[in-house]
Computed example of a mutant assay.
Amino acid sequence: MDTLHLLFNAVTVIFIAATMFAAGLGATFAALRGIFSNVPLLLLALVANGVVIPLLGWGIGALFSLPAAGFIALVLVASSPGGPFGAKLAMVQNGDVVAGAAMQVLLATIGSLTFAPTANGILTAAEVGKGVSLDVVALVRTVALLQLVPFVIGLLLRRYAAPTARSWHPPAATVSNVTFLIVLAGMLLGSWRDVLTLLGSLTLLAGFVLAVAAFTVGTLLATGPPVRRTTMGSVASVRNVGPALAAIGIAFDNEPAILGALAAVVLSGLAAALPIAAVLSGRRSGGPATDEPR
């Protein structure tokens, strides 16, 4: 079982790195300047992901009267923006991949700093759980190594070796697609028992509703054409599981009930986010918006 766990972690790392590398190969400096100079877009994304969605997690948990484990898992997920599935969903929906990847990395980096105080504040106000404290340096380092570095390498190749970038982009996208399917299968196979134990509770529904609400908020609190707005919605709908897992290990001693609830929330959230991206893809005849700033 340990070997399978290590293998799954390795595939997950490859998926994240390949996805960000492929996004970088399809990006340009001009497109990134268009994103990072768009102050309203940045501010709205930060408000949506750092303030509104965590509060939504609190509200949904209270509305559904979730048990303590489910409430804690939902709040931890809602408080952790910048999930690596965000860039992948931008690709799946044929959205603005450059904007999605750039915003994902930015949110993951900022989320490394804001996650602990946000989650701790909500759990304290709701009088649920314990204080959440994390190694911020370790979180930022993980984001840099797995997300930022592959994206920058791909971006530099596109800038200074365009023919190489064009030839490498299809295989990088293929690796991202294949490992994406493996990661999804691994999550389902590894967590099915935990999910089954929660079928009688509202935790699965809460995770689903949170993802739909987060997509809606991310789309509404964005600027630009619909393709960019829905991309921001997809980035908002999938959260960063790494800090949540670390918090459960540090603050809750890897309590099985919370880990199971976390798996249920994450999987039900993906069950909501993936079909939304697929429907958007079916409505778009063109390819991903990766080359030109909007």
Rank of each mutant, 00 (worst) to 15 (best):
Q93G: 04
V75G: 09
E127G: 10
G34R: 10
L76A: 12
D253N: 13
L46S: 04
L113Y: 13
G61N: 02
A31R: 06
A68Q: 08
A264H: 05
A99K: 02
P117M: 07
L280N: 05
A236D: 05
L145P: 04
Y160F: 15
L66P: 07
F208N: 08
A17W: 00
T216Y: 08
A261P: 04
L107M: 04
F36R: 05
A213H: 10
L202W: 12
F208M: 09
A161W: 13
A31V: 11
L155E: 03
R239S: 03
L188Q: 00
A144H: 02
V105E: 00
I182V: 14
V143L: 02
D135Y: 05
L155W: 03
N9A: 08
S133I: 07
L44S: 11
T28A: 03
V212G: 02
A102E: 02
V217D: 03
A161T: 01
A10D: 06
T290N: 12
V75F: 09
A222M: 02
A161D: 06
A22S: 09
A78R: 04
S281I: 06
E127H: 10
V75N: 11
P171F: 11
I16E: 00
N120G: 10
R294Y: 13
W192L: 15
L7E: 04
W58Y: 13
L42P: 03
